[in-house]
Amino acid sequence: MEINLEEQFQKRIDEEVKIEPRDWMPEKYRKTLLRQISQHAHSEIVGMLPEGNWITRAPNLRRKVALLAKVQDEAGHGLYLYSAAETLGMSRDEMLEELHTGKAKYSSIFNYPTLTWADMGAIGWLVDGAAIMNQVPLCRTSYGPYARAMVRVCKEESFHQRQGYEIMLTLCKGSEEQKAMAQDALNRWWWPSIMMFGPNDDNSPNSAQSMKWKIKRFSNDELRQKFVDVTVAQAEILGLTIPDKDLKWNEARGHYDFGAINWDEFNNVVAGNGPCNKQRLKARVDAWEKGAWVREAATAYAEKRAKREKNKIEAA
């Protein structure tokens, strides 16, 4: 019976029929999705912090409202994704508990510090650029609620990368000092952005199954290559140098070749030793704990009010 269900399930996937919350699904499919979606949601929420760090210091009011709206969008995206994950049977509080105890991961890019205003440009351009590469194919992922959340996310994300690139462009057209600031930001964010696509394909154990289930549609290396290919030209327009001496066009492959990734650094940050891991997690835990009395009071008031309204109806 079980095998039959799995076969039927795979057949639906192969026929591009979306899976919906109450449909039968293999336990491993559910778990894989739950891990991926919640991790994605956590990344949005933790991702608010490095950029949130510059909201109060944005250099002018136009930039301030754009950045504020962007970070707010990330909260919205976290919310859409938590909602999608909740359809798989885990509550948002349970997911947050996993984040706060360090059991759940989030994208390690957010464990790097934002040191100058140019980092707002570099994050929008590179980090959101890499995220979009990942996210666009996810709009067609096999699980309905995840795909729908991603459609909404992608629609809203489209201004994020433009916002970042515009910051970079303004800096690069500005003073020597501003251009140096932009180059420095590119230097610091380039490799972490490249690493955002995850381990190389031959080192990514869950990838094959995820591709079969059409949770993923492209491999880590395919997406990474695509990102490098489009970003090189964008850096040229800015007049900035990508910090990779091995970066060059390969006519035969029709792609750019690029240098070896420092996976030790990646693993080190994933293991919790990035420059801001502790700070980021602490900020999230603090917000949650300091908000406990607020959430509790709102629940208490809602219960009181419901009771009062019930009494009023009964009395009438």
């Binding site: 859409y80 909740e86 729908r148 909404r152 809602a302 419901a306």
Partner: peptide
């Protein structure tokens, strides 16, 4: 239908 959210009461 567009999605879901958490709130303490209907007004919120």
């Amino acid at each position: 239908h567009v999605g879901s959210l958490h709130a303490a009461d209907y007004q919120m």
